[in-house]
Nucleic acid binder design. Sequence first.
DNA 1: CCCCATTGGTTGAAGCTTCAAGCGAACCCT
DNA 2: AGGGTTCGCTTGAAGCTTCAACCAATGGGG
Lengths: 166, 166
Amino acid sequence: MSTRWLTDEERVAWVRLAAVVELLPGVLDAQLRRDSRLSHFEYFVLAMLSEAPERTLRMTALAARTNATLPRLSHVVSRLEDRGLVARSPCPEDGRATNARLTAGGWATVVDAAPGHVATVRSQVLDALDDAQVRQLAQIAESILGRIDPDGVVMAPQRDAGAPTG
Amino acid sequence: MSTRWLTDEERVAWVRLAAVVELLPGVLDAQLRRDSRLSHFEYFVLAMLSEAPERTLRMTALAARTNATLPRLSHVVSRLEDRGLVARSPCPEDGRATNARLTAGGWATVVDAAPGHVATVRSQVLDALDDAQVRQLAQIAESILGRIDPDGVVMAPQRDAGAPTG
DNA sequence: CCCCATTGGTTGAAGCTTCAAGCGAACCCT
DNA sequence: AGGGTTCGCTTGAAGCTTCAACCAATGGGG
């Protein structure tokens, strides 16, 4: 089958999107590490817990929300546990499962980190766009997610109030 | 200073963009690993070399184009060298510098990998958008890059023909 | 019940990235 | 020349992710 190459317009759009995808994680990570001693992934884990009922989630559910493999999450939660930000306990309803719960210290850490993170998202992304572009971006990203995440695994239901996810 | 939180529209746009940024690298990586035994980063290194004059670039220039740190690039090039895809040689003009050159085998590898990669980009991203959205995306991504990459380090000049970068 | 497959999670090793040092070449100033 | 600084790159160790193996608990037939 012969390859259908990209048109000029497609190529420009793709090269730029690829650059954003390549650079943005580093920007977010750097700010959080600098200001809060947290990797972006660690922050995200804490943020997801902060939004969950009881600030508690089963490992599997937390892995789905953070798009992590179970081994990766297990290691990270172990380190967060060592730092006193998260506590593990066996799940009462299912003996196989483990619940991860945000501790008071973990909550304080997220609350402390959130404003700086949101400020970064604002200054590095949203403030670069006008209102129309923000709406366009929402549409475009939704379309792409329809392809790369058809089951909406990462866009899982977010109930309850809590610290902003960023 | 009090935090300016996100409006509903901003939050939707950001959550979706964040999801794309989180998922897209894995999608690209998985296809290349599966079909070409190459990580996305390795592919990108080979692609950048394939587009350079003489298919050769100094390590520093290659690091800039791939947004890699020098240590990271050095390790990766060592492994690509072990696989016979890239060759290192001292730079004649500057005794401190090292040139990385794509070998015949490396060229063949990129040429072989490119169609599948482009097909993935198409099916997972571009085909999800209409023409207007492609143009909007180019604009939006450019605006964001203006913040996160003001000096255009990653968008370095691309001269010469070669295998598509993806 | 008992067997067996599946689910939920942890663990340790291997691989890649990051970080801190280090080294030689080039540049600059006198 | 000659001494100090910067540049370009490599190296080895440490840290995080991935992978394969493993274990315990659950659930579904005979």
